[in-house]
Amino acid sequence: MAKKKRSSGQKAPPVQGLLPVTMKINGKSHSDMVEPRLLLVHYLREVVGLTGTHVGCETTSCGACTIIYNGKSIKSCTMFAVQADGAELKTIEGLGEEGNLHPIQQAFWDNHGLQCGFCTPGFIMQTYWLLRENPTPTDEEIRQGLGGNLCRCTGYQNIIKSVKAAAKEMKK
C-alpha cells in the first residue's frame, strides 16, 4: 500500500467543522477527522492513501470509482466520507495482491479485459458485486450489470469474456 500522506488515526489538529469518521476498509479500521464535503473517493485516495479507486468523470457516470459499501456496489464520487462513518468498505486493494490475484483480477488479466487499465478497478469491483448477486450471469445480465461502468479502450467484448471466465472459475 502507498505511504499515507495524512496517516489514518493520526490526531488531526482541531479544525472547526471537522467531523470524526471511523470505517473498516478492507478489514482494517481507519479513523480520521474530515470536512463534511470531502467525497468518499477523495478520502480513500488522499487521506487513507488507497489510490486504486480511480476518479474518472466525477459525475456518477463512468463507474471508475466503484467500491463495495456495506456489501453493495456504489460510486464513491457520489457519497460524502461522513456518510460512510461506521461502514465496511472494500476497494480493489482488498481483493487480491500481486502474486495472489483474486479470480476476477486473474480473469481480466488472462482475457485482456483491460488495455490502459484506468476503468479496471471499477469494472472489477462491479463484477465482484454482480457475481455475488448472480454467480452465473448470462451475457445480457453481464451487460446490464456493468451498465454503470465505461471503458474507452477495450470495446467491452473482452471485459464480458473476463467476467464469464471469472464466474466459471469462482464456481469451482
Binding site: G63, I74, K75, G148, N149
Partner: peptide, 9 residues
C-alpha cells in the same frame, strides 16, 4: 432506473 450502482443508493 439509471445503472446498478445508482439503484443501490
Amino acid at each position: 432506473i439509471g445503472d446498478p450502482q445508482v439503484r443501490n443508493m
